[in-house]
């Protein structure tokens, strides 16, 4: 790459270069060498890509000691730019006093911005590393509490990432 950025005029070329043939052979050498290099393709359904902890997959509710952390404050529903989250609060005997009776994310609307995770005071809703979302109807895309709950062990990497980037 010694000539990179220099203007090459036709009169500067040697006779051999003007015949194109050695230059074409050089190019052929490069393409043939390229053929035997390892490919970057990942064979999708068999080979799954494991995202980094900074990846924002579908949002999930964190479950700690068998109970979700969520106190149903409604901030996530408030901040959601796509209006995808719906929360209904109820009272409970536990220390946190409130829990979500209904927590529903419309996954057709969700834009994976991660605002809900950022705004949550309890670190109760985080973005997981799941990216395979397939629905065949609008109703199927409404993820209720049963689909959203995920234990802390499964979300360890993301929670650590969030703490180190606070």
């Amino acid at each position: 790459m010694s000539s990179y950025g220099k203007i090459i005029r036709k009169k500067d070329l040697s006779i051999l270069q003007k015949t194109y043939i050695p230059e074409i052979l050089k190019g052929l050498r490069i393409t043939i060498r390229q053929m035997f290099r390892p490919t970057f393709t990942s064979q999708f359904p068999e080979e799954r890509f494991k995202p980094d902890s900074s990846f924002r997959g579908r949002p999930v509710l964190v479950v700690e000691n068998g109970v979700e952390r969520c106190v149903a404050c409604g901030l996530c529903a408030r901040v959601c730019p796509a209006l995808a989250i719906e929360v209904q609060a109820a009272e409970t005997e536990l220390e946190k006093e409130r829990y979500p009776l209904k927590f529903e994310i419309n996954m057709v609307r969700c834009i994976f911005c991660g605002f809900c995770e950022e705004v949550c005071p309890e670190e109760a809703i985080v973005m997981s590393d799941e990216y395979l979302l397939v629905f065949s109807s609008q109703e199927e895309a409404l993820f209720g509490k049963e689909k959203l709950l995920k234990s802390t062990e499964d979300l360890k990497e993301r929670l650590e990432f969030l703490r180190s980037h606070r």
Partner: peptide, 10 residues
């Protein structure tokens, strides 16, 4: 396929 290999894909 050859073009794939040249471009480092399959």
């Amino acid at each position: 396929r050859v073009s794939g290999f040249i471009q480092e894909r399959l």
